[in-house]
Design a protein around this nucleic acid. Structure first.
Lengths: 248, 248
DNA sequence: CGAAAGCATTGATACAGATCAATATCAGGA
DNA sequence: TCCTGATATTGATCTGTATCAATGCTTTCG
């Protein structure tokens, strides 16, 4: 089993918030093997919508590489992105057979999928997996609630700063530590996708990006390549209480 | 163990999305007894904040009766409610020792609490509980994401209509079915609390309530007593795709 | 190379909801 | 009963963001 899939079963016990019973190497190997048997890979191209809201969905999956988005759409076309899936994130819900959101690849994407029925059976016989899933779901819930504060109360400028801060810190694959602690990365989202995530229009996103650039909070090289010379300054602009890192 | 606490352990197997192994009556009784041993009740008065964000929190709990809110606050005082706790809802996070939100009783409140450490141990030895918790957390995540669409993309009028529809349908304890299918209930929230939930100001809430009343979508008797003569009409005003009921 | 398509920026104007302010209603206590 | 404070309504005005519209910048492909 490749390293990337391990997060479903393993996690560093130093970080493990739920002190599970020790598992003997033999049993653990059995569990891994069973997971191995029901898994398969799928790849998608950038821009492809893998799942439409309301579709029958007979698998659960985990992102191996690439980025996907979860969006909800109203009848008249208003769209709101409700989640960003980065490598190791999980999608799909044990116990529900219908997708609740559109899932769209924003970059080329590799998913590690598990057929739902055997996955659910495995979950019952292997409490670790359910526990890990609970942790991940609780993290997502916290992230969703943080986003509710952003959507309900932050200004456009604060929203943009918050998004940049989250991307800069969360997506390790994009992050590059440049000299003097500056962060450099390529935005994985178009202006329109940013707008859908932030509850804004793409014009407002563009204007606020220009404003942050003008004020020296960020540097822009082309449309996508971003440098953040001072993360603390950006976090100030984001209006976050905490430093945003939710730890144990 | 009183009926109200049972939801943590039991659920109707007809509805049960996760097909767990059958449990013999004897073992189940043992589980219930262990849960019984670590639980205790707490009561709070309307208006009281039981938990402040950042507080140490060494228990998890479930609402027995009354209503509580989860809110986040920015340094400058902007507030956003990120959750509404109705009877049977769960609060607290196994594996984290610090509260992430303020929890405030909006009515007199009775909570059924479990000390965290023994609860976590019980969760490990009793997979049912973890599975139930996972289901509940996934439901909350869906609710949070539906709220993100509301906060990011709905108009003030749609927001109010959505909130009224949710309260009317979700809080069975408040709901009264009047003649001809009309729904009647008392709002459990002040205008300001509604505003905090919807990402609006209390003045806008008041104006939109008046507008919905003027247009016959709702009837208001006093400030809090609401009659909804036609739920479908209200749902139309809410701009919801679906009928809002997320099932299996 | 030039054309075309997608993506992004910038400008002018409109409007929903915020803000500031005054008044109204209601519940509880002296 | 009237007073008091909390809660709610309504009005006038302001402002941040949406909307409509034009232009610019890349990348791709003939």
């Amino acid at each position: 089993m490749p390293m990337q899939d391990m997060h479903l079963v393993h996690h560093e016990c130093g970080d493990c918030p739920i002190r599970h019973r020790a598992v003997c190497a033999r049993c653990e190997a059995d569990e891994l093997q069973r997971l191995e048997q029901i898994k398969y890979y799928r790849t998608y191209q950038a821009g492809q919508t893998l799942i439409w809201s309301g579709d029958r969905m007979d698998f659960v999956a985990s992102v191996v590489s690439g980025i996907a988005t979860l969006t909800q759409t109203m009848e008249d076309g208003r769209r709101q992105m409700v989640g960003l899936l980065l490598p190791s994130d999980f999608v799909g819900r044990p116990g529900r057979s219908t997708a609740a959101y559109d899932v769209t690849a924003t970059t080329d994407l590799v998913m590690c999928c598990f057929r739902k029925k055997p996955f659910e059976e495995l979950m019952v016989s292997t409490p670790h997996i359910g526990q890990r899933l609970l942790e991940m779901t609780l993290d997502e819930l916290d992230a969703a609630r943080e986003w509710m504060l952003l959507l309900g109360r932050k200004t456009a400028r604060e929203k943009i700063a918050s998004l940049l801060a989250i991307i800069a810190r969360r997506d390790a694959s994009l992050r590059v530590k440049a000299a003097k602690g500056a962060l450099v990365f390529d935005l994985p989202l178009t202006r329109e996708e940013m707008a859908d995530y932030l509850g804004l229009t793409l014009e407002t996103v563009s204007r606020q990006m220009s404003a942050l650039k003008r004020d020296g909070v960020i540097l822009l090289d082309g449309k996508r390549h971003v440098t953040i010379p001072d993360l603390d300054r950006l976090l100030e602009e984001a209006g976050d209480d905490s430093d945003g890192g939710v730890l144990d």
